[in-house]
Nucleic acid binder design. Structure first.
Lengths: 342, 342
DNA sequence: TAGATTCTTGTAACCGGTTACATCAAGAGC
DNA sequence: GCTCTTGATGTAACCGGTTACAAGAATCTA
């Protein structure tokens, strides 16, 4: 960016660069006369300090790097919103980088952050965090969000996926459902695996058989899974999807197929994205305050940058939000997908 | 970030810093033997170049600044997603800064970008762009998105709000609605004003009286406006909200009040956020490909950074997407909010 | 084999800030 | 009036890269 430099200001005010720097950084030991001269010169030249040079010399950038798997869907926009809220509160900027699917791009993303940011928030539920972070010097502050088990001694935030999934299964059982299918997320994704594990454990505890199908976390995999069930006439009376977007896909497909939710079949999701309460029937789900998660990640990163040595894992329990899609059935006889076809 | 510097690598490989720099930037004139020595030393030290120092010396940061009014709602997440898509394609990073409501914070946001980014994407529908950008040297590349009229000779992207609003009014009239109320956005917001203008012009052309209420672009202002109409028993048979979030609020309130959409009253929005097709009844709206808007903004910024001098305004026309909320009525007699109360 | 040419490598200045240290002037103390 | 202290200001090194230019080595030409 073409612009005046501090030396231009010094020349215009007929003082040294050190004095200009002192004035602009509000140091005390500057005579009022000189201060005014410098301020006038800076204003006349429209001087704006060069943040890059400043952070090089201070070894501090006032920016934090955010490395995410992708930028798709409301989960990420909420996360970003929370991070921005906390960051702008503290006068920090966010530098975004997405690593897409593979961990090579992930390492690359981490590298391009070097020398630009004071610390990193890394969310990588889908790849091996040890491999990813091994390229990062231990001195670099970083907070991990929803990462798989690893050997990194770093502060971390996690969602208690297992507890959440258990809660949901118990809720479905309590409302009379027995043949509960789980539409899981992609294999290898830690959130997906933990939710699946919680589901299986809770089903076993309830003495019910697990029925599992794999999805991708995207809406259309919910649609196609639901279409398969309808076509096969599967004998299920509840769908617990591993995230809200898939649950919404399931709802869409059921609506098109003329299957009544929640009367014939219940549907539940995970995340409580803003959409969940807006669709109709509104979606029963597990609430994670996503924006708050982002906020906490940035807050803990700042603590670490400021020298704290708190490597604890913060486990955030989701809360069950019961809405229309899992209301108790009115007619216990007309249930399941088969009830429609028969 | 604590890490090895280029001088450390030079020392370890027993060569000069210039040679290290040449090797790492893949210059041709380096003997293979020296190249290998340097690469080995760099690998052993885990050297990652300091991007801040690099951009200071190159006067090029490979980052672009994004200044938005806020980060709320799907509009911004879609915009960001599009910008990221184009930026990461070109190996650029996005530096976020939101300016909240006031233009003082906006100027501040622009200033903190100085010396960090190669150019800016500025979206500021709600404040005076002349005032905002007057603090920016003309040499700084910047693309404006949805800004009010101004005197800035800069590339710009706009939505054709007037044409969009006309299309919607014509569609509502064509499906038999006559008493069409417009729920406008906040005064002073250029998108809100243009959509209002388009509505008024189209209503006048159709020989119908304008009925206007102000909202905030947020969902709850749609809720409260709809509640007012219901309470007063206003004689309207269509609501054209200035954005989708307000339209969704209106739908929620109508549903709670037991008013049938589209039979008693039609509802339409503007933007086509992903949610619009997912709610039920699905929302008729004007589609702006928001992600594409973000993509184009970044693409044009890159052109400008690379020296192009194209200051044209790119006007993107929305397309009408007709969904359930404006279907023709089944019973032309039972219409309007009054039909319910009578 | 000497001289010209080309290619490789190193030295040091530069990008635009901050700040340790030196310098100098003014006021205090005698 | 002279020294000592204190405070304001300037000089120059530094942050970690890049690169113009100089210098030296290798190759080519006659």
């Amino acid at each position: 960016m073409a612009n005046a430099t501090i030396r231009d200001v010094a020349r215009a005010a007929d003082v040294s660069v050190a004095s200009v720097s002192r004035v602009l950084n509000r140091h005390e030991n500057v005579r009022p006369a000189l201060r005014e001269k410098v301020e006038a010169a800076a204003a006349k030249l429209g001087y704006v300090p060069h943040a890059g040079a400043r952070s090089l010399s201070l070894a501090r950038s006032n920016a934090i790097g955010v490395v995410l798997p992708e930028l798709h869907g409301e989960f990420f926009s909420e996360l970003l919103r929370g991070m921005d809220r906390e960051a702008s509160e503290r006068g920090l900027q966010l530098l975004l980088s997405n690593m897409h699917a593979d961990s090579a791009r992930g390492v690359e993303a981490l590298h391009t952050m070097r020398g630009r940011v004071d610390g990193l928030v890394v969310m990588a539920p889908h790849i091996d965090p040890d491999q990813l972070l091994s390229h990062l010097p231990v001195g670099v502050p970083a907070v991990m969000v929803n990462c798989a088990p690893h050997h990194q001694p770093r502060p971390e935030l996690r969602i208690d996926n297992v507890a959440g999934a258990r809660m949901m299964v118990e809720h479905l059982v309590a409302t009379g459902r027995r043949r509960i299918v789980h539409l899981a997320g992609p294999a290898g994704n830690i959130d997906a695996e933990e939710r699946l594990g919680g589901y299986e454990a809770a089903m076993a505890d309830a003495g019910l058989p697990s029925i599992v199908e794999r999805g991708t976390f995207l809406e259309d995999s919910g649609v196609s899974a639901a279409e398969r069930w309808v076509e096969r006439g599967d004998d299920v009376d509840a769908v617990f999807a591993a995230n809200d977007m898939m649950a919404i896909g399931v709802l869409m497909a059921f609506r098109r197929a003329g299957i009544a939710v929640p009367d014939q079949i219940a549907v539940a999701g995970f995340d409580d994205i803003p959409l969940a309460r807006l669709i109709s029937p509104s979606l029963t789900t597990l609430r994670i305050d996503i924006a708050l998660l982002g906020e906490r990640a940035v807050a803990r990163l700042i603590e670490q940058i400021d020298g704290a040595d708190d490597r604890s894992i913060e486990l955030r329990a989701p809360t069950l939000v019961v809405r229309d899609t899992t209301s108790p059935r009115e007619d216990p006889e007309n249930r399941g997908i088969r009830g429609n076809n028969a």
